[in-house]
Structure formats: structure tokens, C-alpha cells
Amino acid sequence: MKDTAIRPPLTLRTRDALVGWLFVSPITIGFLIFFVGPLVAVLGYSLTEWNLLTQQSTFAGMDNYADALGRNPEFWTVLRNSLVFAAGLVPLNMALALTLAVALSRPFKGVVIFRTIFFAPVVTAAVAWAIVWTFLLQGESGAVNQMLALIGIDGPNWLRHPDWAMFAVIVTRVFKTVGLNMILYIAALQSIPRDYEEAARLEGASGWQVFRLITWPLLAPTTLVIMVITVVGSLKVFDHIYLMTEGGPENGTLVLAFYIYEQAFEFFNVGYAAALAVILFLLIVLLTITQVILKQRGGER
């Protein structure tokens, strides 16, 4: 109290600034230490040749990047796998999510039960989901192949076959995460006023026309959000790969996020792994920006 008497009282603005920074200081400090710092550090690491076992590191300039982009053909396999994974997962996930959402956005008897079912894997640990599906997808004796045998299909050895492993991982991952996108779409669908649709119907539009000309454009903002979340989610997939295929067979499911872990913590190449992390970072930034720009352009038209 005395202090305020001597010094001129703080203006509201200054006080607000103080309180504001005080309020944001925990997250800001933590964010700087555990996120921004490491992000800068990983750039530094990527310029070194660093062995995790011997703990020796030497400056290597751009060697790690040269290794990844030029000398090590494995990198291109990994990058291709990551893109194949995203290209397979994103459309499948979004199409299924939208289908389910359209089916479950209007009330009917049992609708809550179905929503609950399709959303259940979202709250289930990814580790548990991947483990149970690994069990279901065992070669001959796996439940999936036994079911297929009932209808006369001789199922492949899903997780051991280079052509099928990627497919199996993508599909099981879609089952795991599609519920979230479904919910987002349902929320968006329910916020569309019924009048629009009814008006269109009165004009004689078919169900498909209503969807294509009215519903789908109105869903565009949601679609963008879902797309960004799903694309990034597909690039960071780790636990499914770690538990179901370990990147195999024949490196067929070796994706970037898993490759980073493997290089750093299994083969001890810290510098090379850091360079891969930087590449993953750039890839995500690039893809996110591209999508937002594309959508904005589309929105303007």
C-alpha cells in the first residue's frame, strides 16, 4: 500500500500486461523449454555425426541430409511409404467418416448405440487396438482369415506379406480413428439448418443433389479441419507400426515417424535421426500450409 502511495499507480494497461504475462508464464516457459528449445536443438543435432552408444559426436555439416536425400536409398522408400500411408488413410478415413456421419446424424431407433460403437476405438488405447488386431490378423489361424475362409476366401498372411501389410495397417488405423472424424462431421451436419434442405427438396432436388450442392459445400470448413488433423495424424503414426509390423516386411511399412525412432534409439544414429526429424517437421509444415491455401482458394470461388 505504501509503495503505491510513493510511486504513481500503475496504469490499467501496465497492470494488465503484468497480469497477462503472469497468467501465460507457465505454459510459455514450459513451451520454450520442452518444445521450442528442442526444436532448435534438433536442427543442431542434425548437423552432427553422433553415436548414441559411444556418445561421441563430431560436426558433420550437411552430411546427414546428403545421406538421406542422396546416398541412402532407404530414405526414399521411407518417404514413399509415409506418403502411401497418408494417401491411403486420409481418403478412406474421411469417406467412411462422412458416410457414417450422414447415416447417423438423424435420429432413428438405436442411433446412439451405433454412434457409441463406431466411436469406441477412439477412447481405446492405440496400443491395445494394435495388439488385438495383430492377434486377429495372424496367418492361417487368425480370426480374420478364419472368417474369410467361411466365405471361401483364402486370406493372405496380412502382416507378413509385403503387399498386404501396409493395407492392413492402414485399415486398422482407420477403424481406430474414424469415430473422431465421424463425430466432427455429425456435429457439422447437425448445425446445418434443416430449412435449406427442405427448400431444395421442394424445388425437386434429389437426395444426392441436396448433398452435393448444399450439404457438402457447407461442410467445407469442417472438411478442412478434419483433413489437416488426419493428414498430420497419418504422418505421426508410430505405435501401430511399432506393434504390428516393426516397419517390415521388406521395409514395406517403414514410415518416417518409426524410422526416426529406429535410427535414433535402435541403431544409435542420433545425427541422422535428427536430420530425419527436421525433414518430418518441414513435411508437416508444408502439407498443412498447402492444404489451408488450397482450401482458401476454393472458398473464394
Binding site: 494497461r13 494488465d16 500486461a17 497480469v19 497477462g20 504475462w21 501465460v24 505454459i27 510459455t28 513451451f31 523449454i33 520442452f34 518444445f35 521450442v36 528449445g37 528442442p38 526444436l39 536443438a41 534438433v42 543435432y45 489437416v228 498430420v232 504422418l235 505421426k236 508410430f238 518416417l256 515417424a257 526416426i260 525412432y261 535414433a264 542420433v270 535421426a273 535428427a274 526429424a277 527436421v278 518430418l280 517437421f281 508437416i284 498443412t288
Partner: peptide, 30 residues
């Protein structure tokens, strides 16, 4: 309303999408 809040918000938003795989190696040594 305080100076720098806009910048801080922008910084936080840009981190929203970053997976932990990117920073896991430095965090290990940290």
C-alpha cells in the same frame, strides 16, 4: 490485452500440429 499476446498465440498455434517424434531426441538428452 497485453503486448506480445498476439505473437505468443501465433507461436502456440503453429505448434498445434507438431508430433512429439520431431522433438523426442533433444528431449531425451534434456
Amino acid at each position: 490485452r497485453f503486448a506480445g499476446s498476439g505473437l505468443l498465440l501465433l507461436m502456440l498455434i503453429s505448434a498445434l500440429m507438431m508430433p512429439e517424434e520431431v522433438t523426442i531426441i533433444p528431449n531425451f538428452f534434456l
